[in-house]
Simulated scan of single mutants.
Amino acid sequence: MAAPRWVVWALLLLRMLVPAARVLANMEGDALHSLKINLIDPNNVLQSWDPTLVNPCTWFHVTCNNDNSVIRVDLGNAALSGTLVPQLGQLKNLQYLELYSNNISGTIPSELGNLTNLVSLDLYLNNFTGPIPDSLGNLLKLRFLYAFSIY
């Protein structure tokens, strides 16, 4: 007995959408892996951030939504140092970026202004230099910007 035509079309559509979801997850994983290799991690809190996995949703300190898209990165008080990377701007569904109480330095990438779903940005108690990027004005959903010192 042949399957109804709509079932065949639904299966074909599903086969096309699953790879697209994997590409998005891989792009987000690549962005987070760029951050990992740019940070010094003396306590190995990023040890689970394995770029060979299909997506970063199984990594510690990363939360994803039901579509396996990164919505939260919690790296507060992790003794991290190094600099942020522009690739963070690729996390299009990110709502919470928590990086407080580390020793992260350098400039704040203007690409953070691409995170238009961001609700909370916590960069408090780090060692950033330079101006606050004007692009952060694009973050219309931002409700919590925790104070940070810029030297």
Score class of each variant (00 low, 15 high):
112 L>H: 03
107 T>L: 04
2 A>S: 15
96 Y>V: 13
149 S>C: 14
78 A>D: 08
115 L>A: 08
134 D>W: 02
37 I>M: 12
70 V>W: 01
15 R>K: 06
146 Y>A: 09
86 P>T: 04
75 L>D: 05
57 C>A: 10
24 L>I: 01
139 L>P: 04
128 F>K: 00
114 N>H: 11
96 Y>K: 15
57 C>K: 07
91 L>A: 06
114 N>K: 14
97 L>T: 10
52 T>P: 02
107 T>N: 08
30 D>W: 09
88 L>F: 03
147 A>V: 13
14 L>W: 06
55 N>H: 05
118 L>Y: 02
32 L>Y: 07
94 L>E: 04
42 P>Y: 12
3 A>W: 12
8 V>K: 06
117 N>M: 08
120 S>F: 09
60 F>T: 15
94 L>T: 02
5 R>I: 15
72 R>C: 14
49 W>D: 04
32 L>A: 04
116 T>A: 07
148 F>W: 06
122 D>E: 12
27 M>N: 05
99 L>D: 06
61 H>D: 10
1 M>F: 09
127 N>F: 09
68 N>V: 00
50 D>V: 11
87 Q>N: 10
137 G>T: 04
137 G>I: 01
25 A>R: 00
47 Q>M: 12
53 L>G: 06
142 L>W: 08
89 G>D: 08
116 T>R: 10
54 V>I: 09
23 V>E: 02
22 R>C: 00
78 A>R: 11
151 Y>N: 14
18 V>M: 01
67 D>G: 00
110 S>Q: 13
100 Y>M: 08
37 I>N: 05
53 L>D: 08
105 S>W: 02
36 K>G: 07
114 N>W: 05
24 L>W: 02
92 K>V: 02
4 P>N: 09
89 G>A: 10
122 D>C: 07
55 N>Y: 02
79 A>M: 13
89 G>V: 05
108 I>R: 01
148 F>L: 00
147 A>R: 13
54 V>R: 12
118 L>N: 03
124 Y>F: 12
80 L>C: 09
